[in-house]
Structure formats: C-alpha cells, structure tokens
C-alpha cells in the first residue's frame, strides 16, 4: 500500500557549504553572524556620533580620522555591505519558505507567548533598511539635505542643520525605535540560532538584550532631540 513511505532520496548535495546554506538552520546561523556584525557597527557608530556633544572640533576630527584610514574603511564597508546582503537574502528566502509552509491561513490567530518585537521583525527590518538608505544619502553622500547646504567634511554642521528639520528628526527617531525593536529580539535570538541557550542564562540574555536595545535607542535619539531642543546648535 502506498500509505507507507516512498523512500526515495532527494539527491544529496555534495558541497557542505551549499547544504548548510540551503537548510533553514544554516541560514539562521548566517543571519545571526551577519546580525552580530551589524550590531557591532551600530555600537561603534553610536559611540562616534555621541562626540557631537563634545563640540564641532572633536566630531569633525573623528570624521577626518575615519576618512584618513582609507582602505581599512572600505574593508569595513564591504564587510558590512556583504553582511547586509546575506542578512536580507536569507530573510527573503526564509520568508518565502514560511509563506509556502502555511498555504491556508487561520481565520483567527492569537499570539500568547511572543514579544511584539519578535513578531514584527519582518516589518522593522525593511523599514530600518529604508532608513539606512535615506540616512546614507543625507549624511554620507549629501544628495538629500533639505533646507540647508551639505558641507563635505563638516559633520557637525551637517548633523545640526539636518536634524533641525523636524520631519528628518521624526523619521530618524521612528526608525531608530524600530531598530531598537529589531535588536531587542535579534540580540538574544542570534545566540539561540547558533545554539547557545540555557534555561537559566537565556532569561538574563533576554533582559540584557532589552537593556542594550533601550540604551542604543536612547543614545541615538538623544542627538536629534538635543538639536531640536536647541541644546546642541
């Protein structure tokens, strides 16, 4: 009777890298590692930007220093771009797979155990991506710089004049908050994906993820808020 297993093999993939990437678990590992790389950037970027509170000389010197290291900067940039591409490719492929995994949806479905942040990764991610593109166009390339002139090299000026536009700040605060949500889940979930979990440590890790996410959001949004309030001019 054919109710029993038709044990035909799906051809084996000889290359273990391909096999790894093709499995959902492998993709999640890639997402965890690339996520971690981007998180390191987010922290570094924040620390650099907070120098705005120390006055124009300091932050402009910092910007100058970054540009002076040349090749190294590009290596970092390339690594980040690769991370973003892999992170997004994996997400899109997994999302498509997940859509296929449930062809008929529920007429009613309640979430009872998951955090809001974890359920909205598919939204917070793309919005943050859109923001990053806008952000690069504004502060790195200077293509979009409403209501004032972009001055190459004068980071302090660009920052202050940029954030004095209320909607730029609002958009920034909104996107950074979503980044916070993304990190609140991603920061502990990356450990889960690479197989590090413990009934006692994981709850601590979750709390730490929340704290770090909040600290990062507060750190970033302190800049436009200070500018809007006139504390930094």
């Amino acid at each position: 009777m054919s109710t029993t297993a038709s044990a035909a093999a799906l051809g084996p993939h000889r290359n273990r890298v391909v096999t790894f990437w093709q499995s959902t678990n492998g993709k999640k590992v890639v997402m965890a590692i690339t996520g971690a790389m981007m998180f390191l950037f987010v922290v570094g970027h924040l620390l650099g930007n907070l120098q705005v509170f120390e006055g124009p000389e300091k932050i402009n010197a910092y910007a100058h220093f970054l540009h002076s290291i040349g090749e190294l900067l590009w290596i970092v940039r390339l690594a980040l771009i690769l991370a973003i591409i892999l992170h997004i490719t994996a997400t899109v492929q997994l999302a498509l797979r997940n859509k296929r995994a449930r062809p008929i949806g529920y007429s009613r479905k309640e979430a009872i155990n998951s955090s809001y942040a974890s359920r909205t990764m598919y939204w917070s991610g793309p919005i943050v991506l859109a923001f990053i593109i806008f952000h690069l166009l504004q502060f790195t390339a200077g293509y979009i710089h409403p209501e004032s002139r972009f001055i190459e090299g004068d980071v302090y000026h660009n920052l202050v004049s940029g954030f004095q536009v209320w909607w730029v700040s609002a958009w920034y605060i909104f996107a950074i908050t979503l980044l916070g949500f993304h990190l609140r889940h991603g920061l502990w979930s990356m450990f889960q994906s690479v197989g590090i979990a413990h009934t006692r440590h994981t709850p601590m890790l979750k709390s730490a993820a929340l704290l770090i996410a909040v600290a990062i959001v507060l750190g970033y949004i302190s800049i436009p808020i200070s500018i809007l309030l006139g504390i930094v001019k």
């Binding site: 678990n25 997994l94 974890s118 359920r119």
Partner: peptide
C-alpha cells in the same frame, strides 16, 4: 516546514 524565528509561540 517553515523556519524558526525564536519567537516562542
């Protein structure tokens, strides 16, 4: 099956 996003449902 779909993949795990560690949400815990």
């Amino acid at each position: 099956f779909g993949n795990c996003t560690s949400i815990g449902e």
